[in-house]
Design a protein around this nucleic acid. Sequence first.
DNA 1: CTACTTTGTGGAAGCCCTTCCAACAAAAAA
DNA 2: TTTTTTGTTGGAAGGGCTTCCACAAAGTAG
Lengths: 373, 373
Amino acid sequence: MEALPTKKQNWSIQVAITIYDIAREAKVGIGTVSRVFNGHPNVTKETREKVLVVAKRLNYQPHVYAQGLARQRTNTFAAIIPFFTNYFFIEVLQGVQEKISSIGFDLILHGINHPDEIDESLRRSSRRGRVDGIIFFSMRVPDSFAKKWKDLEIPIVLVDTFHEAFDSITVENFQGAQIATEHLISLGHKNIGMITANIKSDPARIRLEGFRAAIQKHGLTPHPGNIIVSDVTKLDGFSRDAGYLAMKEMLKLGSNLPSAIFISSDVQAIGAISALREKGLRVPDDMAIVSFDDIELAQHFGLTTMRQPMFRMGELAVDQMVKRKQNPAALPVQMRFMPELVVRQSCGAKKLSPNIEDYVHHKDINELASPQD
Amino acid sequence: MEALPTKKQNWSIQVAITIYDIAREAKVGIGTVSRVFNGHPNVTKETREKVLVVAKRLNYQPHVYAQGLARQRTNTFAAIIPFFTNYFFIEVLQGVQEKISSIGFDLILHGINHPDEIDESLRRSSRRGRVDGIIFFSMRVPDSFAKKWKDLEIPIVLVDTFHEAFDSITVENFQGAQIATEHLISLGHKNIGMITANIKSDPARIRLEGFRAAIQKHGLTPHPGNIIVSDVTKLDGFSRDAGYLAMKEMLKLGSNLPSAIFISSDVQAIGAISALREKGLRVPDDMAIVSFDDIELAQHFGLTTMRQPMFRMGELAVDQMVKRKQNPAALPVQMRFMPELVVRQSCGAKKLSPNIEDYVHHKDINELASPQD
DNA sequence: CTACTTTGTGGAAGCCCTTCCAACAAAAAA
DNA sequence: TTTTTTGTTGGAAGGGCTTCCACAAAGTAG
């Protein structure tokens, strides 16, 4: 019962074709075979043909790890992503995946469900010869970490988070939040609240700051208790449940309930709408909502939201990684996108000026701002 | 401008620590160093300590590719997934990711957006020494492919699709569809329709068959035109848009509209509900709906649906992969889960017997059927 | 017709591990 | 004490590739 499979395996190992086999069969040297597969110019047409014919006949496949070992690079990037079931990450990830694949690289995915796992993932990714670069998503980078990572001497690109020591691709969370809030102000709302995700998350914190700045800038009186900061840790509070709970909390304000709120993500908004609906309150009639992200579902819910070019951000992360490898010594590059206000039903603007186009079906994400590099 | 980065790189390469450095510093042989890191028992405590101290001092990291080359295995699996923005895949993928990570393996992700890419992905994954196994999602496996893949001599596990030559983890689509349909029948509906995804997809096709079987079994008269088969190719028709369009189509039946429908996935159901709402029709009052999958959103929409243990399926795929590697010669194993009817609002059953628990918050997916291996 | 390039080629060395075998030391058995 | 067993160790071989160096052949210039 044990012997048989082993036997079988042995056979399958012996069957492996190496450049030595090809060299022998084609009556050339191994160096020549290697040159053929690497497109080295100094090989005559006839030799090249001869090698390729034999290689095809023997169904040769180069051994990736042997190549990696000899070349000292892996043609692989790692992506370290928190909670990748979050729709935002998925859309960015798709951009990353497609781009990586298009340049003939492979993508190693590390999902992080608990902060402790970050270190482990980085350790795994940073083992020498594992990957050529790491794309790091959304998680705050403490200075102590930054120093350690710099020592890794492996390129790191940050997406949706920022640290001066690394390349980063982010969105203007502050201004985005400001624009969102000002949209509500422009619709005449005086008592505007906010529901934000866990403040440990940079985007959540900055969006809150942007919101406050807008309120202040327009001389509105801040109403106590109409800012709900989620203390949910799962998904950093960027979840439907967190939004639901936050709105439940807010509903306790009773008659002091704001007439409009800015919510730090679409998923939270969806949860919040649930909570409102349970109370018999309607959006936007009883409460106007503007949120953030523009995930695919946002359009279904008619959410007015701040659109982030997620797919594009993923692609750019890979582009930047490639550039960084070409020039490791260059100064860190920061790319920031300006999110775009997408007006749908949830803010109530459509009621005021119904000539704006309605249900947007299949509208492509267009690039909002070009990177400033 | 060119010289500097190169110089820098040289330096960083020279700084790389190998077992030879450790052996020298610790005054032991390389074999001993290797044994220490591989937990080989025959090393004295003192020697082990000595090596570990030096290794820590020099910040030694083993070179993954060198290990892979020497060990003849990679500790890496590939997952080939179509349209991984689909919620179903994401949840399965998460199971895969967590399990892979927990056994200390890495996951290489290949997203497929067009059938042509399958071959390329398989080629890339099957290069010798690239991965130790491939988990293949949802896509139909033609016999011609199967033969080719068998020759790859690399373990393949199928998830959400079936072929007799490979291990597979699937759900009872036929019976699931039957149960869903019978639930509607049991609620008294006589004219029941179906909206299905693209019939090219196995799950879609089989669910349609299950639906038909249920209708026939209970002696209901099939109503012409109340089965809408999506011809959308994007996401194989398992999308909100496809569901929306299908319902638009169905609405043309006018007064012949069925009073209940079975829809082949939750996302489609969400789209269909959109279309109904636009016409001012309400769920479940004007139309009862049962769908399939139980993605996270289903509960938000109050969808009555057939729950698949997606996360668990992902985990099992990895488990099976490990088993398969231990015993490559064993006969293919098929695991089939029975989906479970989750009753929420969209079918209208709650109205009839309101004692059923309502909004299910955070209920964990429990395993529905144990694998029959 | 020589001297010097250029082009094409073979294969050793090197990338960094694991594993196996031989050698030795220490402990146990005779 | 001698022999056998057991435990520990060093390092060669091997995994499959790239790259560099040496060299031969062929071309170019003087």
